[in-house]
Write a protein that binds this DNA or RNA. Sequence first.
DNA 1: AAGTCGGGGGG
DNA 2: CCCCCAGACTT
Length: 353
Amino acid sequence: MTPPGDFAQRLLHWRDRHGRTDLPWQRDRTPYRVWVSEIMLQQTQVAVVIPYFERFMARFPGLIELAEADLEGVLAHWSGLGYYARARNLHRAAREIRDQHGGCFPTDLAAVQALPGIGRSTAGAILSLACGQRHPILDGNVKRVLTRHFGIEGWPGKSDVLARLWGLAEGCTPAERVGDYNQGMMDLGATICTRHRPACQDCPVGKSCLARAQGRQSELPAPKPPKALPTRATLMLAVRNADGEILMEQRPPTGIWGGLWSLPEVAAETTPEQWCLTHFGAKPSQVEMLPQRRHTFSHYRLIIQVAALRVETTPNAIGERSDLRWEPIANAQQLGLPAPVSRILLEILNKSA
DNA sequence: AAGTCGGGGGG
DNA sequence: CCCCCAGACTT
């Protein structure tokens, strides 16, 4: 299982000719920019990240601006990207760096990995890409390249398989040009050693690839063992008043959509009329049940039922609850919204216009 | 070791 | 419809 001695050299030579050099975070490769890009790119495809990265950098050009910002604004710039704990951790880490590292991004691997939201692979990526330090990375691209090249069996999410992959990643990493090597491995996985129909004839390390030799490219890496998705249901209330405002509710800081603004949710057994009686002391003047919609997460399927309500009175409890707010419908898109809620509000806005 | 945490791309 | 993507964190 020892890597061929010229593995890294072949990869570096290929990257010099065919690697990606025009991605936004590849110009002005400061630790801050590389860090933000690596966090956004966790479990998220490059093409999706690019516009988010540009908007984020325009608003938070440096670490200090991010640390000084409030979490709400950071979440608003993350809205639609998913995995919102990434944004919360990014914001927390920026303040840690400001307060405990003198505002300078740490250059010690253990110190970087100790920051919230940064694990071993992301720490290695930042320090190799931005600082040239010799650390391996193990993202989805590298896992795919290594499992195929060395014929590693088993799902890479299993700890023993993962440990073997880290050993291979370490063993393949060259002493020089580590940033280019790591970037080259990701380039290779993204453009040649793709999930479907890899372009093995163009691969710089194809001659020593075990999966290619055995024609097993489609079998490696082994897929995640399937499990049945549970289904949950929720009833969201789109409560509008006579001033063209809609009632928004901020979600708890942790859990699904943590810290984002959403629509008030009630248990599926509760009727909108009951909810209005409790919160407004009066029944709604209109109730319209919108068509059900479904939203699928990695671990469950959510059936969303929206009740569109109109009320003529002011809720008697809103003054005591900072997590409830009347918002002009047209302004709601400026808040940090979950993607399905954003679509619901756009639909309501279009229908009323 | 398994579960939690989003949303979209592409087959 | 499906699985996967520049993973990390909690239990």
